[in-house]
Design a protein around this nucleic acid. Structure first.
Lengths: 141, 141
DNA sequence: TCTACCATCTGTAGTAACTACAGATTCAAG
DNA sequence: CTTGAATCTGTAGTTACTACAGATGGTAGA
């Protein structure tokens, strides 16, 4: 609205959906530049909104803060090396897929146990039995 | 091998696949009982192997340590209330499914970006474009 | 003018579930 | 007697925030 476009941290928070404490945290760890001040208060411009938005979206895609830092560097570093970005994304994608696979393994066991419990055909408790399995002798394969 | 079956922490670690530091950590937070000592060294019995195995398997299913504590209580508390176990598992299952859904959302965007990059039909960098999208005005929907 | 309130400030500590030391002992074997 | 492996205690670091406590500043209403 204002011609200058300068906003305070609260407004930046509202526009990006990013918690105020988190914004200050990002600043502390150097993910966001030290902002100028209006008196004692931090003052942000249009480009700060963009940068924080970038960070937020990268976080939503599951990138770690270190990866976000790298992405920011690649995005701002003159000729943004798309190949490097691609590699970072591909490596992260691999990680995401592994986590999905892990969770799906858990999902199967849990769903089976709950189903077995609901069916009520087993003598004991299906989940406790699954967890107690191998208690006699836990030989690592 | 020994008639008593008493083992040290290293052997417990080997049998359960659980790190020694982690075993001591579990003891500190009360997940495992304070073991007896042979001199200054912790001494474990068969049932400790079983209990730690239970904890490990529960962790592999993604239960938090607090949930594991609850499960241990339900398992050991006389008439183990299977219904309570079921509810805990069902609630955790819901959580696991939400996490899978989150990761799959990430997976889709990442895979699309990498694919678009490999295709090389776009002018800019697909991922950076996706992350920068909305930088002009980040309106929360 | 006084007072209340709101946003902001700094700095620290807490969260989950480990992991990684440093530095001291102790046991058994050669 | 010395060496090495295993264990001990205690503390600090990790990730990405979140939650205060206590101070300060500017504005708005009575």
């Amino acid at each position: 609205m204002a011609a200058s476009g300068a906003i305070q941290i609260g407004e930046l928070s509202r526009r990006t959906g990013c918690n105020i404490e988190t914004i200050r945290y990002y600043e502390r760890i150097g993910l966001l530049p030290t902002p100028s001040r209006r008196g004692r208060f931090r003052s942000y411009a249009r480009e700060d909104v963009a940068r924080l938005g970038f960070v937020r979206r990268a976080r939503e895609l599951g990138f770690t803060l270190d990866e976000v830092r790298a992405l920011l560097g690649l995005a701002n570093g003159g000729e943004s090396r798309c190949a490097d970005v691609r590699d970072l994304a591909a490596s992260h994608l691999k990680d995401v897929r592994e986590r999905i696979a892990d969770l799906e393994r858990m999902e199967r066991v849990l769903a089976d146990s709950v189903r077995a419990c609901d069916a009520g055909l087993e003598p004991g408790c299906p989940l406790l039995d699954a967890l107690g399995a191998g208690s006699r002798d836990a030989e690592a394969a």
